[in-house]
Every structure is written in C-alpha cells, then in structure tokens.
Design a protein around this nucleic acid. Structure first.
Lengths: 220, 220
DNA sequence: GACACTAATGACAGCCACTGACAGTTGACA
DNA sequence: TGTCAACTGTCAGTGGCTGTCATTAGTGTC
C-alpha cells in the first residue's frame, strides 16, 4: 500500500497535491494500458489517453516522457525489484546462481506488487501487445539491455572485477538475459499466466542453458 | 560491382531507370550516414538528407520506410551473409559450433562487402552513433532478435526439432546473440576496427561463455 | 522517330508525437 | 487571508510519416 516512488524513510501523509498527482498518474496508466490492450498501441493516440482521464495532452507529457513510457510503467516496477534481489544475494554464491535465485525467489513478491497496480490479466494482454508491436518491442529490448548493464556492474563488484576489463560479467548477464526473454515469451504465449507457471518456465529454461550450449543435442 | 538486390540468375544490364534508382539509393545512404556520423542522428532531419541528394523528402520515404531504416542499410547486408553462412554449415556439426564458425569464417567476406558500400571507418562511426542513440539502439536490438529468431529456426531444422516445442534452439541463439553483442560493443569501443580485431574479440568472448556460466570464477 | 504506357518524382495537405512559452488555477504555508 | 510555488491548459511550432494528384521521364511498340 506504500507509495511507489517514495524515499525509504518517513511517509507522513503525502499531502493533497501529491495524492492528486498520484491519482492522475495511476488513472493515465490504467486508461493507457486498457486502450493499448483493446485497441492496440498504434491505434491509440495520446489524445485518446488524455481524453479518457480528462486532462490535456500536455499534461500527459508532464507525467510521461513519451507514449512508450506509460506502457512500461509496470515492468519498471518488476525490474527494480529484481535488481534489489540480486544485490541481496550472499557474496559467496556463484554469479549465475545469484541471478537465478534472485529472479526465482523474488517472483512472488513482484507478482503481488504488480497486481496492486493493475490486474495481472491486463498486464499479460499489454505484454502481448508489447511483443507484437515493433516500436514497443524495440523499447522493451533496449530497457532489457539497460537492466543487463546494471546487473553486470553488480556482478563485477561482487567478484571484485572491472566490467570493462573482464568481459565475463557482461557475457554472463547477456546470456542470462537472453534466456529470461525466451522464458517470458513462452509465458506470454501460453494460457497459464500465474506466477507459479512463470517460475516453472524460468526454471526449465535456465536449466537448459548448459545443455543447449553443450556439444551435441542428440543425447536428449 | 554487381547490383546488390538482384535475383541469382541472369543480370542482363539493369536498364537506365533501375540504374538511376540504384544511384539515388546509394547517394541517400551515403549522405545519411555521413550526416549521422558527423552531426548525430537526432540532429539530422530527413529534409537534410533529402536536400543533400537534391530530392524531395517524399522521395526519401519511397526508398526507406523510416529514418531509422537508412541507418541499418549496411548491417542488413552483414546479417544476410551470416544467415547464409549458418545455412551452409555441415549438418553433423554441434549447434553452437555451427553458429560460431559461421560468424568467424564469413567475417572477412562480410567486411569486404561492407567496404564496397562505404568506408569501414564511416561504418564504425555510424555504429557508435547507433549504440549511443536510444532510438537507434532500440531498433538495433529489435533487428538482432529478429535475426536470432531466424537462426533459431535454422538450428531447429538442423536438429530435427520444433522451435515452439523445444526451447533449446531459442535459448542457444539468445545466449549466442548476447555474447555477439558484447563483442560488438568491445569492438566499437576500441581503437582497432579491423576485421581481424573483431574476429579475435568474438573468439575470446565465445570462449568465455562456458567459464562465465560455470560455478565459481575465482579459479581464473 | 512519334506514340501510348507506366514507373518515379515533386508539391501539397494532413496526422500524430512531442516541445517551448505563457497565462490561469489551485494546493501549501506563513 | 494573502503570497508563493506547483500544476495545468492553450497555443503555436517542429519533425517524422502518409495519401493524393499532377508532372516528368524511361520503356516498349508501331
């Protein structure tokens, strides 16, 4: 129930103005996602979204830097949680294992946090729109690599390495990120969009990295 | 010197109209890349590019679907070569090895083909612009995943699998693609942009995938 | 070599994402 | 209650991109 973007300490009742802003932002997000999911991204104009919340187009752009940004409001939440989870892993753990457990262990929390914002089913529908809309898919991938960059730095620090000198941190997270994306696609393509299903898919895909890279597949 | 997009058989002199189109397209590409490299992508308008070649803006959009597309004219060439190279690998080869050798072995040919279009040095400068411009980076990553999808299908056929049933093809190319991107970044960040340097980087990065994913790194 | 045929182009109007500037409104706080 | 600062709406303008239509310029034919 906590305000999402608030600093850690002291939350002494945000004040009317702040609450109003929060409500406007949430209304814009919900209206936008609903429109994207039903009508599609490209056939939804920013004017449509603004009109649905009864604010001016200019106001929309004061809350979101671009039309794309509003589509990634929910994923953004999830990403920050993953980063935190990786930071929280014990130092002795192997790098890949730290990434793997961070994602798997924090998955239920993430799902819960998402549901607090929008219904999980709407999130899934929007995710499908993201994957099938070139402009959004591109933005999604760019965001993913930015996240990977952050994770590479964290891994490097854990292992006492320089990210620019030793390529292993970036290679690890790049491979890991690619696998996560495969799992995400399989999740959105399927019909079971529960958190448990996603966790299972992620587990299976991560377990397959080794075998997939290994020499011969005929021994499956 | 052959016309790039011509069908395999018979090239009986393209005709004046076709040659004129070819020249216009090449001029647009060269003007655009030069402008992107010097002035930056966002500070170059389509009108600028069109004016540099003395055609109307409308004509530019008849050659390229978007301003982005012209920036990827050269990479597009390289990608198609890689796909062909993978298709040409012997069937018995292990999947990862096929991808690896396809890229490494065709690298010199690709470099040569690129140089026929634009100076390699200009290509590098444009590549740096792509990596540092959010909109272009996003488009680059989307193109990369489209390529990965194609490669996953090829790998699946090689191994007699169904891409949608067995996740291994997609996992393999996702991991592979991630590593290739790391190598590309290191290439563009460095000062030696020769084909040989790129091949060496690629080799090093690919050799590190196993160790990076393996349990503990302290044994480096 | 004149003739129709068709592809390529330019000029123009218009949509949409996005931005800067200015003025009006509304919470915050003394 | 009055002052200040934050939030908002309006308006004008830029740039990417598209549809339309008249004009130009290769192409094949007689």
């Amino acid at each position: 129930m906590e305000t999402v973007g608030t600093a850690v300490g002291a939350l002494p009742r945000p004040g009317l103005r702040e609450r109003k802003k929060q409500r406007t932002r949430d209304a814009l997000v919900r209206a936008a996602l609903e429109l994207f999911a039903t009508r599609g991204y490209e056939r939804t104009t920013v004017d449509d979204i603004a009109a649905a919340v009864d604010v001016s187009q200019r106001t929309f752009f004061r809350y979101f830097a671009s039309k794309e940004e509003v589509a990634f409001f929910v994923p953004r939440l999830a990403e920050s949680r993953v980063v935190e989870a990786v930071r929280g892993r014990p130092a002795g753990e192997a790098p890949l294992e730290a990434l793997r457990r961070a994602v798997l262990d924090s998955w239920d929390d993430i799902t819960e946090a998402v549901e607090q914002l929008v219904p999980l089913e709407l999130h899934l529908r929007v995710y499908r729109v993201i994957e099938s809309t070139p402009a959004l898919l591109a933005a999604h991938l760019r965001r993913a690599t930015e996240l990977e960059e952050e994770l590479a730095h964290i891994v490097a620090v854990r292992e006492g390495l320089d990210v620019d000198a030793d390529p292993r941190p970036r290679i690890l997270v790049a491979a890991f990120g690619g696998v996560v994306r495969v799992a995400e696609r399989r999740w959105s393509a399927g019909d079971d969009f529960s958190a448990a299903a996603m966790r299972d898919l992620m587990t299976v895909c991560l377990d397959l990295v080794g075998p997939a890279l290994a020499g011969n597949w005929r021994t499956s």
